[in-house]
């Protein structure tokens, strides 16, 4: 991705971001069109078929994406979407969250939640261990009691909970 010098820092340009999003929506539109043709896009004797509306929705997405693409191309190439340092900040949340979400299917929701809160507080907040542990264990415990015990809503659980027999 090209970088443009711009005062305080550098980063991806707004122009490239706009183009990227337009291409993505265009792709999405094409997928929708393809999916619609699979179930029939015609207008049957008793009204539209299953794919009728999605098909035209897909067409409109593609059409407008192309307009957005051209408008993106005309954007000022020096304006920044965000500075790299700011994006770094975003990634500091996004990466732990992505790992968290990836862990949930395998370890349930409780253990990854403890880890997420602990990592966050230790790493980003620089809190002491006692407070970190209290919050990291307390919050999932609170949800276990309210949801599973009071409201009888089972949340995903992993090997640890199975071992504990919860």
């Amino acid at each position: 991705m090209q970088q443009a010098p711009h005062g305080a820092g550098s980063g991806p340009t707004q122009r490239n971001a706009e183009i990227g999003v337009a291409v993505l929506t265009l792709l999405f539109g094409l997928i929708v069109i393809y999916g619609s043709t699979l179930v029939g896009i015609g207008w049957g004797s008793d009204g539209p078929q299953a794919g009728f509306f999605p098909f035209y929705v897909g067409l409109i997405i593609c059409g407008c994406s192309i307009i957005n693409l051209f408008q993106g191309l005309r954007e000022n190439p020096t304006e920044l979407f965000s500075e790299w340092s700011q994006l770094g900040q975003v990634l500091r949340v996004l990466i732990p969250t992505a790992i968290y979400v990836a862990l949930v299917p395998f370890f349930g929701i409780y253990v990854p939640s403890v880890i997420l809160i602990a990592v966050f507080m230790k790493w980003l907040g620089k809190y002491g261990t006692p407070l970190t542990l209290a919050v990291a264990l307390g919050v999932p415990a609170f949800f276990y009691i309210t949801l599973e015990r009071w409201f009888l809503i089972p949340l995903p659980k992993g090997p640890l909970e199975a071992w504990l027999g919860l």
């Binding site: 969250t97 968290y100 979400v101 939640s113 997420l116 990592v119 966050f120 809190y127």
Partner: peptide, 12 residues
């Protein structure tokens, strides 16, 4: 830095 992970957990 305390409330953000808690919100993330609530969202999940």
């Amino acid at each position: 830095s305390i409330i953000a992970p808690v919100i993330l957990v609530i969202c999940a």
